[in-house]
Design a protein around this nucleic acid. Structure first.
Length: 860
DNA sequence: GTAGGGTTAG
């Protein structure tokens, strides 16, 4: 180390050091005679730039500059004044000692991370025709690797060949590493194989090529090469080799091989190496053998902060968050110096559990401790904010990002893109899709990566802006963008399709998936497909996807169950439940929630209540608030209000708004005004009135023709500023979906639509349809009510659906709220006079209309 | 002057 070698003595006084000297080789300085040794020590000990310059000057004055110039270069370097060193070096005639100085300068820049300076110094050397020696190339190549500049690397390679140093093993090893860092794995491999042929291949070469494969994510080849290495008798794998190959075992889940390596490490005495211990822990953790990881951790005599971090993340990765956080606390107790990885891991761990506030609090602790957040920290804390939709805190982090960490360049975001993606995700998840979109648009298309697209599409999909999600998804494939969606992008797009019941679009995505080989991550996507098909009205396709799955998890089963429930196929669902249990899946809280939902939508009230009762007694699953709400819903829909009330009163927890809303909803269906008013009063007490509860109440009054109460609720709504969500229905056309509101005349073909609708109404009236004027929630005369009814959005959507439909093909209509009973009735009649099956999805379930009957059998 | 390869976080 230069610094320690030339450590300046702070107290030394320059003048007093220059003692006159007699005898030996003497020179005259400051009118005194001093020895060469004295000048050298003085230069070595000088501790300020001022002193160095003073000596510099004196040497010039006394004509001694030439003899001491390289000494001066070192002195300036030691004083951290490389520019002085360079200016001396540039004027110096080439010599071996001058080359050593250039090398020292270059190494200094590399050590400080100034890779560009390394290259410019090297080029300067070449320009000045100073021949570099073999010592310097590894440093220069390393700089090229750090800059991932393949071009510079290749040109340095050229220089090496010209000088004839391409058989130097150090240099060749550095070249392998450089090519690997630049992502040129083939070149690295070629280099390595050439070295083997020439027999200049040592353990470092092997380690480098294994590391190269690991860095490019090719664990299989890394392990394969390691095997070849061990079969070479002249090569003895060392600690580095293990540290290179262990992560490969981890990512391949090759625990057996990992355990063999553990044995190897112990036998060769490599276990003492803290790096090896850490890599072993990581391997075990990645293979899901967390207890083994812990054993290694406890047996390690020397632990560093990485060991602790690896254990914290190990626990976090297997979902044992409390243990992870416990270790974090222990680290603090034992005064272990926490690094940015520790903080980031803990923040990420909280974010994963949707514990955003705790993530934020750790982030603040981190700042108090003076640790500087990096990209990963920021991404983690932003995902914490996103997980709890904490917009204000998310904005704070945004402010922090702008203020103190990154000064991102929208035209060349580089690493910062991850933070920008995190910000887009946070804003989108906090329901600020406009801000998110603004940021998304600010990143030039060529600079966006697949995550940028995914978070934006996912943001739209999550907040019901499904049309925008699909529009953006389509844009991904347009010229100039052409980014290949990943698994999550596809899942987000499928979610949007499910929301819109956009069956055709969903099928296209399904076809795309099959064409583009996503085999490795099929499970998630297939689960999304089940959901998409069943929510788009094609439960049979959902079943086909399910039956063809190679691996299923509990989500697959519950998705299918939910699908059957939505379509009112209770019997099918019960069969599936039997298969699920036969396949060895244990019924948990979520399964029971789905079962209650299924029963409620299939009119299987007694069966549902039996499930509810048995979940605690037979399956040891304690019913939570949601289970109670579902059970109340089940009883309410069936009009069994006494039982519903009894259940509410028996709840071990305070009933929340959702319980009263489902009760109110049941009351609306069955016209139980008295109990409905009671539920509404409870909602008022909780301060949880919203558009849904007001609408239910006013509809209930309207059904009972209590117009004064309807007016009262409406004015109350107006007074409290709650806006009624307008009902709308949509049909998937060739280009996106066509959406209709009640009385909507905005569609370009509205005249045709109204004409067809009028004709349909007339024809069904002739076969017995009578408008149910109770459904017109306005106090007007019956004629007018009939007109209002005929303009309901679902009727308009149906008329349009008939206009664009292929004869015989099912017509899919979706409504954002519940379908009204008059529309239900009218559509039943219409299904008698057209050939197409009509599949209507409302906010509650599916209705399949065919030949004058509906699948829901009145349970809706 | 004495070079080259390594572990943890999203």
């Amino acid at each position: 180390m230069l610094r320690s070698f030339y450590r300046p003595n702070a107290k030394s006084k320059f003048i007093s050091q220059l003692k006159p000297c007699t005898g030996g080789s003497t020179i005259s300085l400051f009118s005194s005679a001093v020895s060469v040794t004295t000048i050298v020590t003085t230069l070595q000990k000088c501790n300020s730039l001022f002193q160095a310059k003073l000596i510099h000057q004196q040497l010039l004055v006394h004509g001694l500059y030439r003899d001491f110039s390289t000494r001066l270069v070192w002195a300036y370097l030691a004083l951290d004044a490389p520019s002085y060193s360079i200016s001396i070096l540039e004027r110096l005639t080439p010599s071996s000692s001058a080359v050593i100085c250039w090398n020292a300068l270059i190494r200094r820049s590399l050590r400080l991370g100034f890779s560009r300076d390394v290259l410019s110094l090297f080029r300067r050397m070449l320009r000045l025709r100073r021949a570099p020696d073999h010592y310097i190339f590894p440093s220069v190549l390393k700089a090229c690797g750090e800059l991932t500049s393949f071009r510079s690397g290749a040109s340095v390679h050229g220089v090496i060949s010209t000088i004839g140093l391409d058989s130097n093993v150090f240099i060749c090893n550095a070249m392998v590493a450089m090519y690997a860092r630049c992502g040129e794995l083939d070149d690295a491999r070629k280099m390595f194989e050439e070295m083997r042929e020439r027999g200049v291949c040592d353990i470092v070469s092997w380690n480098s090529i294994v590391a190269a494969y690991m860095q490019s994510g090719d664990a299989k080849n890394a392990v394969e090469l390691f095997r070849r290495m061990t079969s070479d008798l002249e090569i003895r794998p060392d600690g580095f080799s293990l540290v290179n190959v262990l992560p490969a075992c981890g990512s391949l889940g090759a625990s057996l091989h990992g355990m063999q390596l553990h044995g190897f490490a112990v036998r060769r005495g490599l276990f003492e190496d803290v790096f090896v211990g850490n890599a072993l822990m990581d391997m075990y953790a990645k293979c899901g053998m967390i207890e083994q990881a812990n054993k290694v951790f406890e047996r390690m005599e020397v632990k560093d902060v990485v060991s602790w971090n690896a254990m914290v993340t190990g626990y976090s990765q297997v979902g044992r968050f409390e243990e992870a956080l416990g270790l974090f606390e222990k680290m603090k107790e034992e005064n272990i110096e926490l690094d940015v990885v520790t903080w980031s891991s803990v923040i990420a761990s909280f974010a994963q559990q949707d514990r955003g506030y705790e993530a934020l609090s750790v982030f603040r602790q981190m700042q108090v401790c003076g640790s500087k957040p990096n990209v990963v920290t920021l991404v983690s804390v932003l995902s914490g904010c996103a997980s709890i939709a904490a917009l204000i805190q998310g904005k704070e982090i945004h402010g922090f990002v702008i203020k103190s960490v990154l000064n991102y360049d929208w035209n060349d975001p580089g690493e910062d893109l991850k933070v920008i993606n995190g910000l887009i995700d946070m804003y989108a998840k906090c329901e600020s899709t406009n801000v998110a979109r603004f940021m998304f648009d600010s990143v030039a298309p060529s600079n966006r990566n697949v995550v940028t697209w995914t978070v934006m599409i996912g943001g739209y999909a999550q907040h019901g802006e499904a049309n925008d999600a699909l529009k953006l998804f389509s844009e991904m494939f347009q010229d100039g963008n052409s980014k290949k969606p990943n698994t999550s992008t596809i899942c987000c797009a499928l979610m949007a399709c499910a929301h819109l019941a956009a069956l055709r679009f969903g099928k296209q995505i399904h076809a795309y998936m099959l064409r583009n080989q996503y085999e490795s991550e099929m499970l998630f996507m297939e689960n999304c497909l089940i959901d998409m098909y069943s929510k788009s009205g094609n439960i049979h396709a959902a079943r086909v996807v399910f039956d063809n799955m190679q691996h299923k998890n509990s989500v697959s089963w519950t998705s299918l169950l939910t699908g059957y429930g939505m379509h009112g196929y209770g019997d099918e669902a019960i069969k599936v439940l039997g298969d699920m249990r036969a396949a060895g899946f244990v019924l948990d809280g979520i399964t029971f929630l789905v079962l209650l939902y299924v029963c409620s939508h299939s009119g299987m009230v007694d069966q549902g209540i039996r499930f509810f009762e048995s979940m605690h007694t037979e399956y040891d699953v304690i019913p939570g608030l949601e289970h109670y709400a579902c059970a109340v819903d089940l009883l309410g829909r069936a009009g069994r209000f006494d039982q519903a009330l009894k259940l509410i009163h028996s709840m071990p927890m305070e009933p929340t708004a959702i319980v009263w809303i489902v009760l109110l909803s049941g009351c609306r269906i069955h016209g139980n005004v008295e109990l409905g008013e009671y539920a509404a009063a409870k909602l008022r007490e909780l301060g949880s009135e919203n558009d849904a509860s007001y609408t239910l109440l006013s509809n209930m009054y309207a059904n009972a023709r209590r117009w004064r109460d309807v007016a009262r609720v409406r004015s109350l709504m107006k007074y409290s500023g709650v806006k009624r969500r307008p009902g709308c229905s949509w049909v998937e056309g060739k280009k996106g979906t066509a959406t209709f509101y009640a009385g909507d005349r905005s569609h370009p073909h509205f005249e045709q639509i109204y004409e067809l609708l009028a004709d349909l109404i007339q024809r069904i009236k002739a076969i017995g349809y009578v408008p149910d004027t109770n459904c017109a929630l306005h106090d007007v005369d019956d004629k007018e009510k009939g007109d209002l009814l005929s303009e309901h959005s679902e009727k308009l959507a149906l008329a349009y659906g008939i206009l664009i439909s292929i004869p015989g093909a099912p017509i899919h209509i979706t409504k954002n709220l519940r379908v009204c009973s008059d529309c239900h009735n009218a559509i039943t009649y219409i299904s008698m006079i057209i050939d197409n099956e009509i599949i209507l999805r409302d906010s509650s379930r599916f209705h399949h209309f065919k030949n004058g009957s509906c699948s829901c059998r009145g349970y809706w």
